[in-house]
């Protein structure tokens, strides 16, 4: 009898050990292979700047309320409130000590595409690498090149204030295992070059789905409701549906959408509001062609009510 129990317990322990090892293996931080970053050449700064604006880095990493040239100072410090606690956005300016001025391309790239920090730790998805992961190493090289041209700031942001267990970065591994991938969100069968560009901008750096797609109980995006809108996760109000089935933008032309991104005015001369104000300001830096690509993509995604 005693023997039997020992065997069962032993087997159980072995299973648990294998399970833990497998879980660790599946959920540990997974940087890209080192050679992903080799031979990328000189960055294209103009392309990098486009990624900076569509990526909305300034919206989170600049000081609160920054205007004019100050929006290019990535000093960090903005508090982001969430149901898990408060995140304090870090300094990613070109300062070698307080910012990321001393980071290698691989370190920056693993943060952007894999959600892995400089020390090999998991990063919180409040930093939308879950979308940025759809960029390529070339894109990251261009963006990194541009970020280096921005001013340095010595500001140090306070540590995040998160409750247990969210304050343990290792727990993010499970979340990433479930919800983090770099697959396209929609399948656009006959996508021409313009649509493909729109898909890249919206699903990748633009991270539009992070706000415009509803989330499940664990905080993952609901694939079947891509861009369908829903309650605002940051507080009161709703985020609008921006698929062709939307009660508002469904009837807008592609030109109306481009005009909204450029000026903040809807076709009825209502004005952009809420967190979209910041996004619209950033989008107004994009070329007409890129904004047309975004509009074309929004007209091509599956209709949701």
């Amino acid at each position: 009898m005693a023997l039997r129990w020992t065997r069962i317990l032993g087997a159980g322990a072995a299973v648990v050990a294998v399970g833990v090892a497998a879980a660790w293996f599946l959920t540990k931080p997974a940087p890209l292979p080192e050679d992903s970053w080799a031979g990328l050449g000189e960055p294209d700064l103009a392309r990098g700047e486009t990624l900076f604006w569509v990526g909305g880095c300034a919206g989170c990493h600049a000081a609160k309320g920054a205007t004019g040239d100050a929006v290019k100072v990535m000093s960090g410090g903005l508090p982001l409130t969430s149901p898990f606690g408060t995140f304090h956005v870090p300094n990613i300016s070109s300062d070698p000590n307080a910012g990321i001025g001393a980071w290698t391309l691989a370190e920056f790239g693993n943060a952007m595409l894999r959600g892995v920090g400089k020390g090999g730790e998991h990063l919180y998805p409040s930093f939308p690498y879950t979308s940025y992961a759809r960029m390529s190493p070339e894109d990251v090289n261009n963006l990194f090149g541009y970020m280096k041209t921005l001013p340095a700031s010595s500001n140090v942001a306070p540590p995040h204030e998160l409750g247990f267990p969210y304050n343990i970065r290792a727990t993010l591994g499970g979340w990433k295992f479930l919800f983090f991938n770099s697959e396209p969100w929609v399948d656009l069968a006959s996508a021409d070059e313009k649509l493909q560009r729109g898909q890249f901008l919206v699903e990748g750096p633009g991270h539009c789905g992070e706000c415009h797609t509803p989330r499940n109980a664990l905080g993952g995006l609901e694939a079947g409701q891509w861009l369908a809108g829903g309650p605002n996760p940051e507080g009161e109000g709703r985020i609008p549906n921006i698929t062709p089935g939307s009660r508002s933008v469904g009837s807008w032309s592609e030109g109306d959408l481009v005009n909204y991104f450029q000026t903040g005015f809807t076709p009825d001369y209502d004005s952009v509001g809420g967190s979209m104000v910041e996004v619209q300001k950033n989008l107004s830096h994009l070329s007409q062609g890129d904004l047309e690509a975004i509009a074309a993509y929004l007209k091509a995604v599956p209709e949701r009510q």
């Binding site: 009161e236 000026t263 903040g264 004005s271 952009v272 509001g273 809420g274």
Partner: peptide, 16 residues
């Protein structure tokens, strides 16, 4: 005129 609209709607208007 237009610069003032978003500046107010950002904080004081809420789509429901």
């Amino acid at each position: 005129l237009g610069a003032t609209c978003g500046d107010c709607h950002e904080t004081y208007r809420l789509k429901r």
